[in-house]
């Protein structure tokens, strides 16, 4: 309990800082909401136009496909609000040497780096995604078990996504510019934005096992649609665990590789 106390205090302070910043830079706040609105609309529009011309995409009809779109969109809302700014900040801190100050603090370095910044404005679109999820979920008549397990599956999917991205972000220790690793991470998001069945067999296998970005989006929704497919959840949990262990190893190797720019 005493180990956890400093961490909870830091989180509390971070939330207070983020809210203070939110109130201080109101225009930025509005713009961040604009980003989320644009992101939601630009995810919905192509899928909607597509279904004006076709009945199904793969095994899914319009409602199922839209459910998937808003599921991933919800995950991206949480990602943009809680995690994404920290990845960019991490790259900048490695470049400038500001990471030194984080390493000196009496906190776990991964925790400190990944909770440095949050953007509550991005989280404000989460209820809209949730409403759309419920709307399309009702249309496809999800089972009670699916509704009950949905929050848990969502959290697990989000966690899996973050852990995989953490591994990719560790590339920043080795690439000089720093932005490159973030671009790889963003491209992985582009891949998980679409269901796994539309990828060719080899790509699907690669992105389900080697870099399992498809696990977080597709596997979780496949379980929601068919709750008898527990293997999807097990695989996703396994991916999260393996990639967490891998991230711990890569992070410690990266720290050894790190040459502070400020000292």
């Amino acid at each position: 309990m005493s180990t956890l106390r400093p961490y909870t205090r830091v989180i509390r302070q971070q939330i207070a800082n983020s809210l203070a910043k939110l109130m201080a830079f109101r225009l930025s706040f509005i713009f961040l909401i604009l980003v989320e609105v644009a992101s939601l609309i630009t995810a919905y529009i192509p899928a909607s136009f597509l279904f004006n011309h076709v009945e199904r995409v793969g095994p899914w009809n319009r409602s199922e496909f839209m459910f998937f779109i808003f599921w991933t969109q919800g995950m991206f809302c949480c990602h943009n609000g809680l995690v994404a700014p920290n990845f960019w900040n991490f790259a900048a801190e490695i470049r400038t040497g500001a990471l030194d100050f984080r390493l000196l603090r009496p906190l776990g370095s991964v925790f400190d780096v990944m909770t440095a910044i949050s953007r509550p404005a991005s989280l404000m679109m989460l209820p809209i995604s949730a409403c759309c999820l419920v709307y399309f979920g009702l249309q496809i008549q999800l089972s009670i078990l699916a509704w009950l397990t949905m929050p848990f599956v969502f959290c697990l999917a989000f966690l899996t996504m973050v852990v995989i991205e953490l591994n990719l972000a560790c590339l920043t220790f080795w690439t000089k510019g720093g932005d490159g690793a973030n671009f790889v991470r963003m491209q992985c998001q582009q891949i998980q934005r679409w269901p796994d069945f539309m990828y060719p067999k080899r790509s699907r296998l690669f992105f389900s096992t080697a870099i399992p970005v498809l696990a977080s989006g597709s596997f979780s929704v496949q379980f929601i649609f068919d709750t008898s497919r527990w293997d999807r959840i097990v695989l996703m949990g396994l991916a999260a665990l393996v990639f967490w262990l891998l991230a711990s190893y890569v992070w410690s190797r990266g720290l050894r590789q790190y040459e502070s720019a400020s000292s």
């Binding site: 690439t175 000089k176 510019g177 720093g178 932005d179 490159g180 690793a181 671009f183 790889v184 963003m186 491209q187 582009q190 891949i191």
Partner: peptide, 15 residues
């Protein structure tokens, strides 16, 4: 930084 250049400018449209 050629590798970074490829990652930032060629990879996004390719993906």
């Amino acid at each position: 930084y050629k590798f970074d250049f490829l990652l930032t400018l060629v990879l996004p449209p390719l993906v």
